[in-house]
């Protein structure tokens, strides 16, 4: 117990990494299928990204460039903490720039920048089972997946429409993968669902507490569940980002004062900075240099 010096590269021992890699390979071979794996106790709490961290640790090599985001931002505390962890135990290069990263670990968002071949997006997943809130029993949900019994999923969507006139699921919106498995995309807003479809990047999902890994290999067919006459739609925002003027991106609402004043800014901080560096400005934005001062 003489400190971190005795820990292996990227914290996990090589046996454990091999076990996780086997699970990942199986997950890639059966897109959308939840592969059980012997999740380890990690030095951060369950529910704080232990699944994602284990996946990242298992695939990380010394030449990788790592980016970690939470809510789309690189500077949220948990993203900072996980990034610092890998700097400490693997001494890898880190970045906030989506383009430069080879591995991006994320919680709740997919970057706005289109991911490309060779990149890996690692999702932190709290509850991997899309059927869990319809059927709490693992023994039963496993059977439902095995037999493709997904009628219940549409019952839920039907109820949404009957009650609200539209589907009321806004995040963790279930998808069907390659026409076979129904999958939980992790609690990303449904806005990000289309980005999973036919993505050039490999997408890996790790759920530490629930001990499951699943995957979307590059160029996988990912369809958000819906009805033909009530098709899946994503959120749209009325105004562009107040800082960089971007449209068609996911925005966070920032409360400015207690009189109801608020503004909407990019949730993807790297994307926003990049645009401002290129000279794009929103109606409340300032050029990047000034802001830094």
């Amino acid at each position: 117990m003489s400190g971190l010096a005795t820990y292996n590269f990227a914290y996990l021992d090589e046996q454990t990494k091999r076990m996780i890699r086997r699970a990942i390979l199986k997950a890639i071979a059966i897109p959308g299928y939840q592969v059980p794996f012997a999740s380890r106790e990690m030095p951060m709490p369950y529910g704080w990204g232990t699944g994602g961290v284990q996946v990242t640790a298992a695939i990380l090599g010394p030449s990788d460039v790592l980016k970690v985001i939470d809510q789309g931002a690189d500077d949220t505390t948990n993203a900072v903490s996980i990034r610092a962890f890998f700097q400490k135990v693997a001494n890898v290069e880190v970045t906030t720039r989506t383009k430069e990263a080879t591995i991006i670990q994320t919680r709740h968002r997919i970057p706005e920048e289109k991911l490309t071949e060779g990149q890996v997006l690692v999702y932190q997943v709290p509850i991997p089972e899309p059927l869990r809130f319809l059927e709490p029993r693992e023994t039963e949900t496993r059977k439902m997946h095995a037999l493709s019994e997904y009628g219940l999923m549409h019952v839920k969507l039907y109820e949404d429409i009957a009650r609200n006139g539209h589907i009321a699921t806004t995040y963790a919106y279930p998808v069907k993968v390659e026409g076979r498995y129904v999958m939980d995309p992790s609690p990303t807003p449904k806005f990000d669902n289309p980005k999973m479809h036919m993505s050039e990047a490999l997408q890996l999902f790790g759920a530490g507490r629930e001990k499951r890994i699943y995957a979307l290999p590059p160029f996988t067919d990912v369809v958000s569940l819906d009805f033909d006459d009530h098709p899946f739609t994503v959120q749209s925002f009325e105004k562009p980002c107040a800082l960089c003027g971007a449209e068609g991106v996911y925005l966070d609402e920032v409360v400015l004062d207690d009189r109801g004043g608020r503004m909407f800014v990019c949730s993807d901080t790297d994307y926003c900075e990049d645009r401002r560096a290129q000279g794009f400005l929103g109606d409340q934005g300032v050029p990047l240099k000034e802001a830094a001062e």
Binding site: G151, L152, H154, V155, Y158, F227, D228
Partner: peptide, 12 residues
């Protein structure tokens, strides 16, 4: 409607 959805009906 559940049985219809279970066998693949997709028009609400």
């Amino acid at each position: 409607g559940e049985r219809l959805m279970a066998i693949g009906h997709r028009r609400y």
